[in-house]
Design a protein around this nucleic acid. Structure first.
Lengths: 338, 338
DNA sequence: ACGGTTCACTGATTCGCTTCAGTGAACCGC
DNA sequence: GCGGTTCACTGAAGCGAATCAGTGAACCGT
């Protein structure tokens, strides 16, 4: 393989030559350290004239820093997580940092690989929405890299911050509401990738269902609207159709809407649907999706603030708990005796 | 600033020492070049034992290659583009490559900056959905880097491939359909960022409208559902409400749906809505959004195939034209005399 | 048995920047 | 006017790989 391109970028050496300084001085000057104001100005000018821009790769190799923040998503197949990722990207941009977005696609193994990869890319910080919060890797990573988790807290890791979803509360909110509306038999649709052993949210469902005397039936829903729709169809077509479906993400609920439409079932008359997340589109459906709302803007801001602060060397190490709210719209009706 | 972390990664030198070879030999062996099978195996083993993994940054500096593909999106605020970006990310992953996703947010200036940044990051290829296809930068970039454009073709650039949307056809399809349904006065909602001088799609709208004898009223819609809704509201509340709204992306159409709901207007009875893109959610709305459909999977596959092939050194240089189809659902009705 | 290949591998250099350990001059108080 | 600081800057040594130009040995046909 030939040396890829005859790179003709101007280097720091040329700027040094043009200004009659040493490369080291130029390096310092461009970062505004240890040199006189006058020299800084002179170097800036020369750099601009020569069209010099520091090579990020060389810089990363020498300094171990890149200015980038890694974002490791649980599963970008989920629309809400897409929004989250996009929001974080934008928030970082406003802080003059860039996000390196990777998608674990719900696979704990891939998550580990990608996390290491991000570390090797010398990201200055890592925001992760962990698929497997209990992986020992996190503790190890957090030793040398500011890590901020979103969703679940990382087990035994000295993170730089945590934006924790109070899933217990969210589940309680949802199930109590269904219970109030008279539902007893409810299907719980949970994403495939939550197959991680004792995922906290799932545990809460079981516990709460028991407490409330609900008869639940857990179904895992695969990725993608089409696939979810298929699963939802077979669920709704089954002989013992539940009166309500509690979907562990709005994306999944959309699949239930599609299935209902396909089967000619009316929401909420024939089947009540409850979401989880509150994606912007949920309010546009007919009927609007009743769902558990998380303050996505707040989450984005908190995570970005924590990771950037840590990357800049401050250590706050804060745990921010997100409290959910029930966003009642029209997709859950009173349970009618069939 | 202290040297960030006491990096304790194992280097190629240690592997060399462990095997009694030179670092160069190890480097070759790990890439399966110029060395005996036996040595390769020996090196692999030693590397595994020492937990050695090549440092991507050092590798990038030395070789000018990273294995990453840059993805420069026009505006990730748009849901369809989010889907596109996600799809490309996944497709690349399946080819053992990673996407470095950046968002121009509709700003031509930012687009240029980010494109350069991507080049400096040594991406092996670049997929861009250009905000400003006529920027001279593209030609320059394409000289040394495989560039694939999605949407509009880059002007005067020797790209590695182009996935061009036949927007002329798409616009014709949409406007002819509206015309057939009897609409004469239609509002055209176009994203703010299409303010690039003579954006092709906009030109087509004007031309087609004239040809069809439509009385159009072009309104620019800002980013985000909330903002779009506001604009749509004032449009629909205006005294001379058009009978139909042609939205230049499904995301914008969602804003019109929200506005209609807010104002108590029925779709399509009081206002017909036409989208452009066909986002997965469009079929779930009530009524379903009639829209212009692009084969998003096909686009993703084509773009990825082209850029990966080019990054691997083949040169295909193909222009793939995407033909749209009208996806008729229920959001456009016959125009009733008011 | 001899020049010519091929093969497997090595040493040195390079990529472009950061950073450490100085170095000399100016400046300080006394 | 003499030690001690501070200031502005320099030279050289990395960072961790890839790559180029060899180098000796084995192998080749004749």
């Amino acid at each position: 393989m030939p040396r890829s391109q005859p790179r003709k970028r101007t280097t720091i050496r040329e700027v040094a030559q043009a200004t009659g300084l040493s490369p080291a001085a130029v390096s310092y000057a461009l970062r505004g350290m240890q040199v006189s104001e006058e020299t800084i100005e002179r170097v800036r000018q020369a750099a601009a004239e020569l069209g010099y821009e520091a090579d990020p790769i060389a810089r990363a190799l020498a300094s171990g820093r890149t200015g980038m923040i890694g974002l490791l998503c649980g599963s970008l197949e989920d629309l809400w997580q897409q929004s989250l990722a996009f929001g974080i990207g934008r928030a970082l941009r406003e802080k003059d940092r860039y996000a390196l977005i990777l998608d674990a696609a719900g696979d704990p193994g891939r998550e580990r690989t990608l996390a290491r990869q991000l570390r090797d890319q010398r990201v200055d910080g890592l925001i992760v929405q962990p698929v497997d919060p209990a992986a020992p890797l996190w503790a190890q990573l957090a030793e040398t890299l500011p890590v901020v988790s979103i969703g679940d807290a990382l087990v035994d890791a000295r993170t730089a911050g945590e934006v924790v979803f109070d899933n217990r509360r969210g589940v309680t909110l949802a199930l109590e509401y269904l219970r109030e509306k008279g539902h007893r038999r409810v299907a719980v649709l949970t994403p495939t990738w939550s197959s991680t052993p004792d995922r906290p949210a799932d545990v809460h469902v079981t516990a709460e269902a028991e407490r409330l005397g609900l008869d639940i039936d857990v179904v895992t829903a695969p990725h993608g609207l089409a696939a979810t729709t298929k699963v939802a169809c077979s669920l709704l077509r089954g002989e013992a159709r539940p009166s309500a479906a509690f979907c562990f993400s709005d994306s999944i609920a959309y699949g239930v809407y599609a299935a209902a439409a396909e089967l000619g079932l009316r929401i909420p008359d024939d089947i009540s649907v409850m979401g989880y997340d509150d994606h912007p589109m949920s309010g546009l459906l007919t009927p609007g999706l009743t769902t558990v709302n998380w303050d996505i803007d707040g989450i984005v801001r908190a995570a970005v603030r924590l990771v950037v602060a840590a990357a800049d060397g401050q250590n706050r190490r804060r745990r921010i708990i997100q409290a959910p709210e029930l966003h009642e719209r029209g997709s859950v009706g009173a349970c009618r005796p069939s």
